[in-house]
């Protein structure tokens, strides 16, 4: 089984969010870039599945310019076998999915994180599946391979399901897919330097959405403090003032 893991290159989740002076673009000055947290969990599970046997290849793919290469190198250090970077700026989900569709045909299992932590689109995985006209399963919190067949755990409201699925399939994964993201070991980092990071030219693709402007949320009023021994007053405030109890 061959696995493709889609990798989004995002600002570190502790980044203080700022926009350029006219508020039309994210200000990336001084920002640390990381593998999107859900993509990192997806990759971790892919590596675990390979270690258990039954997976012959893990490829990671990203749409972006050369500045995303350190993120792909990290993915190689975590355990991917090779990487593909489609050399074009990521503009919107449809454009990214169109680019990825051009390299995704030969894989049995395509893994995507439930969303990217920057623009929170939740769209690329599903779009890619539709472009390839293949199955997709969202809210996946577990993937197992038994006798060459894929089984997914899917979260539903108030519970979970075990599914079998036809391949190829896009699994859109979330919390639970792997316990903790795998940190690259020194050996992995050394080996990653020798692995192939293929840069491919983009296909022609349209974008259908564009950012007009950004804004930060309004500042919250100061927190009203209640004394430690006066929980009764807190409940009264919630009941009478905030009217939420």
């Amino acid at each position: 089984m061959k696995i493709l893991v889609l990798i989004s290159n995002v600002p570190d989740t502790t980044t203080k969010i700022r926009f350029k002076s006219d508020n039309t673009a994210f200000d990336d000055a001084g920002v640390q870039w990381i593998i999107n947290p859900w993509d990192e969990l997806a990759l971790t599970r892919a590596v675990e599945l390979k270690e258990m046997g039954g997976v012959s290849l893990i490829t990671v793919a990203n749409v972006g310019n050369a500045t995303t290469e350190p993120t792909l190198r990290k993915a190689l250090a975590v355990g991917a076998d090779d990487a593909i970077r489609i050399d074009v700026e990521a503009r919107d989900a449809f454009e990214v999915a169109t680019q990825l569709a051009s390299v995704a045909r030969d894989y049995d299992l395509i893994m995507a994180g439930i969303e990217a932590s920057d623009y929170n689109g939740s769209a690329v995985g599903g779009m890619l599946a539709e472009l390839l006209d293949i199955a997709s399963v969202s809210s996946v919190s577990g993937i197992n391979i038994e006798n060459g067949q894929l089984f997914f755990n899917r979260e539903i409201d108030g519970g979970s399901q075990v599914l079998s699925v036809t391949t190829p399939v896009v699994a859109i994964v979330q919390k639970g897919i792997a316990k903790e993201p795998r940190i690259p070991a020194m050996r992995g980092i050394m080996m990653a330097r020798k692995k192939e990071l293929k840069v491919t030219a983009p296909v022609s693709a349209e974008d259908r959405t564009s950012f007009v402007r950004f804004e930060l949320p309004p500042k919250k009023a100061a927190c009203k403090m209640v004394a430690e021994d006066n929980a009764k007053e807190l409940i009264r405030l919630l009941h009478e003032e905030a009217k939420v109890l």
Binding site: F94, N120, S136, S138, S139
Partner: peptide, 22 residues
Amino acid sequence: NNLGKALAPRVAVRLQAGLETG
């Protein structure tokens, strides 16, 4: 939500529509 996020991207591609989520 879980189901809407799963379906909307597929629907948008098939209808050649523009998608915005959330």
